[in-house]
Design a protein around this nucleic acid. Structure first.
Lengths: 193, 193
DNA sequence: GACCGATTAGGACAATTGTCCTAATCGTCG
DNA sequence: CGACGATTAGGACAATTGTCCTAATCGGTC
């Protein structure tokens, strides 16, 4: 894995910097320094900064699709698959604590910037949303599957935001447990509403 | 209310712009244009951009404290007070849909910028957190009052993030209802754990 | 009216930004 | 070897950034 195209190196470095510092706060010079190439070299690979962002979003979309497919294959039941989604909060808690959720913070920033690539970034959310909704449908919750998916997404976003604000590992663990209990409740025969 | 100090006008304009466009993406020139004064005039009122940010945070802290006090007086029961917190999602849904939560997005941005005023911005969260925890304590949940407060904060943050991403009014309404039901569940005699 | 601090306007300043050009170097194929 | 396209380095460019200076103007006090 030591061998990479310069273009791949740029995208990888930009991906990380956009996550850690934000898109606007990351400059051409920052990325160039991270990859150790000259600034002028950029123009050959990417005409504009927006083009780098598009490439980063594209990579993230591909990686997310792969991850969802892996979960689809690895999880024997829809319930197990939903639980793998929840557990990324634990798996990535170190980064989440420091920089928040990569999807949520990027979408927020692009929204405030009024950036043309915002819809593309939003597709990251949509990917998770429809995947989760599908799992809930398989669990017999066809009528409100999308609502459940959105609620689960919202909880994970909230956990990421607060974990980052308060730098609290224990909070993440507590909330993940709580979400797992919530999933279990959804599988019980309905009591009301 | 048409009469305001220039300083107050600056802070008000900066507050709004920081919320709508983000702190870094708002320039001196933007604020100057909004207040219709010369850029040079700024230096007399605020030595640095960070000083404006501090003033904005200070104002937001004061306004938040006032709001919490108002809720404290208006709500006859701790439950009613908690519900006023939840309902700000509905009251501010137009802005939330467009720009997200003012507290959450500011803290996220300042975290990524590594900004020295981040701890100050975080006190906005702490204000809500301790106020909510107090209400839950009054409701007889002394042992896990803070955990409940954090969970409620997390849910509202998640709702704001997703509502902004998907520009979805109905989602806010659905989630607010869900959170209200959750509060009701917390008041019932405990079933487990 | 004369004075003086507070306020304001206008612009200079270096630094940084994204963008873009030109020339040198590399690797590959004939 | 020679040639040619891909890649790279270095720097120029205008625009914008936050910062800061100086001079004009305002508003009230003696």
């Amino acid at each position: 894995m030591l061998e990479q195209t310069t273009r791949e190196q740029i995208v990888r470095a930009a991906d990380e910097l956009f996550y850690r510092r934000g898109y606007e706060h990351t400059s051409f010079a920052d990325i160039a320094a991270a990859v150790a190439i000259s600034r002028g070299n950029f123009y050959h690979h990417f005409k504009t900064k927006d083009a780098i962002l598009d490439a980063v979003i594209s990579v993230r979309l591909a990686q997310t699709r792969e991850m969802l497919e892996r979960w689809e294959l690895a999880g024997k039941t829809p319930e197990a698959r939903v639980r793998s989604f929840i557990d990324i909060l634990l798996a990535n808690r170190a980064d989440i604590k420091r920089y928040g959720c990569p999807v949520g913070t990027l979408c927020s920033e692009l929204t405030k910037l009024g950036h043309p690539s915002r819809p593309d970034a939003n597709r990251l959310f949509t990917l998770f949303r429809s995947w989760l909704a599908r799992q809930f449908t398989l669990l017999g919750r066809g009528s409100d599957a999308d609502e459940l998916a959105m609620h689960l997404l919202a909880m994970s976003q909230g956990v990421a935001t607060l974990a980052s604000a308060f730098k609290d590992d224990a909070f993440i663990a507590t909330e993940v447990e709580r979400i797992h209990r919530w999933v279990k409740d959804q599988l019980k025969p309905r009591r009301r509403r």
